[in-house]
């Protein structure tokens, strides 16, 4: 059963802006990516989900998403702190994280990579470009990339 969850290759989208949430869903749909999308609306909820705490306390912690799409500007707990916390925790340390944000500030890019982001993508204003970006990252992280979880469970 657990294998089947991981086989399902879910996406965790951390996004507080409902427009962006909807646009991301649309972009994934337009890219023919039908994997389950779990949405956390702020950093705290994202951490609860990943570490199975708070409202997600009942969740099976071993069922991890294939990739987390993380916005940086989030209510409650910011994106960078989320990144710090999951990289500090043994259970979430290996989770692939793609920072998906409006900012093109050099400081944000550098800080994200420093705290262990696997990728940094700026959301373009032009929707065609946005769809293209989402399509590529979906293909890459969900199909091409080998998830760390299989290897762990194999052991």
């Amino acid at each position: 059963m657990e294998d089947s969850l991981n086989d399902k290759k879910t996406i965790l989208l951390v996004e507080d802006n409902p427009d962006d949430e909807e646009l991301t869903r649309l972009a994934l749909t337009r890219s023919n990516i039908a994997n389950e999308i779990i949405v956390a609306h702020d950093g705290a909820e994202a951490l609860d989900f990943l570490l199975a705490t708070g409202i997600h306390a009942a969740r099976n912690i071993r069922m991890m998403p294939s990739v987390m799409l993380l916005d940086l500007k989030l209510p409650k707990v910011g994106g960078i702190e989320v990144l710090q916390r999951i990289r500090a925790d043994e259970r979430t340390r290996l989770l692939p994280v793609v920072v998906l944000t409006s900012s093109k500030e050099e400081q944000d890019i550098v800080t994200s990579y420093r705290f262990g982001a696997n990728s940094y993508i700026r959301k373009p204003v032009n929707f065609e470009q946005f769809i293209d970006a989402v399509r590529q990252l979906g293909l890459y992280w969900l199909l091409i990339n080998e998830s760390p979880w299989q290897s762990i469970e194999f052991k």
């Binding site: 802006n17 427009d19 962006d20 646009l23 959301k123 204003v125 929707f127 946005f130």
Partner: peptide, 8 residues
């Protein structure tokens, strides 16, 4: 972000 929404 709003521009992206408008365009999207």
């Amino acid at each position: 972000a709003p521009l992206r929404a408008i365009d999207g």
